[in-house]
């Protein structure tokens, strides 16, 4: 599509979005423009409204004010082009079903009412499982999966939809190193295909390595833009408050110096994650 190539129509555009749970605003007057084809990390402290923002973009929540446009149109008209990877803990993994069955759920939208998934859908689900390195486990009961495997099943389910925008809620939460690698590879593949990824992310140290855009959120939007431009100490302080500590934080995060960041002073010695960056 033309809009994806010249990037004129943003993948996601959020205007003046306010969401409240019982008078307490979870998001307050948030604007966000995500150009097509970027990997965007949403970071912010607990209760900053990160998940709420994702759900509002997906149309799962009714905002008090503001609007969300996906490729220039309301999200309900763009269901085929948007996909969602919820937090692992949002479902009951004791549900009686298999890995392949869960992944095939990604095809239910296009199938429409009543029609059941057939061989074609099965093939696509298996291909998606292959992509996340889970093909051998396709017959496994979902209750027998590890946390990392659960996460990859959810990713495969989203991949099956073949959407243009992927919204992920903490895809790296509590996964093993193997799964983390697999997800990073997947993100890069998606970027190479011109897809847009918006992910809630917790590990600040890996933001410059995994993502190219970042949004700093704490109920209000603090900053949003390319990592090199907005992911700096000033903005992080504004987002996380005064107790935020950083060591050797350089302005030019992107290419040269690996950023060694710790959300708290007590952890500032543990820079072992950051040194692998860029």
């Amino acid at each position: 599509m033309a809009d994806r190539h010249n990037g004129k129509v943003p993948a996601v555009e959020v205007q003046d979005l306010t969401v409240a749970y019982r008078e307490q605003p979870a998001l307050w007057d948030v604007d966000l423009t995500v150009p097509s084809g970027v990997l965007l990390a949403i970071v912010g402290p607990n209760g900053a409204g990160k998940t709420t923002l994702l759900k509002a973009i997906l149309g799962l929540l009714r905002p008090v004010a503001g609007q969300v446009l996906v490729f220039g149109q309301p999200v309900v008209q763009q269901r085929r082009r948007i996909s969602y990877v919820p937090q692992r803990g949002s479902v009951d993994w004791d549900f009686p079903t298999s890995v392949l069955d869960v992944v095939m759920m990604g095809t239910y939208g296009e199938l429409g009412w009543i029609r059941r998934p057939g061989r074609r859908e099965r093939e696509r689900a298996l291909a998606a499982l292959e992509q996340v390195g889970m093909r051998e486990l396709s017959d496994r009961q979902i209750s027998q999966l590890s946390g990392g495997q659960q996460q990859r099943v959810f990713l495969a389910r989203a991949l099956v939809q073949d959407a243009d925008i992927y919204l992920m809620d903490e895809p790296f939460q509590g996964v093993d190193a193997l799964t983390e690698r697999a997800i990073v590879t997947l993100l890069q593949q998606l970027r190479a295909q011109g897809k847009t990824v918006i992910a809630v992310h917790h590990d600040l140290q890996t933001v410059p390595e995994y993502f190219d855009w970042v949004m700093l959120l704490n109920v209000r939007r603090i900053a949003c833009g390319p990592v090199a431009q907005v992911f700096n100490e000033h903005n992080l302080r504004l987002t996380y408050g005064g107790r935020f500590a950083m060591a050797a934080f350089a302005r030019e995060v992107d290419e040269t110096a690996p950023a060694v960041i710790a959300p708290d002073r007590s952890r500032s010695g543990g820079g072992d994650h950051g040194t692998g960056a860029a």
Partner: peptide, 22 residues
């Protein structure tokens, strides 16, 4: 029988069902 897959998804993950447009 008719709404087999719809009910399955509704019970397992209603949010995802909504995202798919169900």
């Amino acid at each position: 029988l008719l709404l087999w897959k719809e009910f399955k998804l509704l019970v397992f993950d209603p949010d995802f069902a909504r995202v798919l447009g169900l």
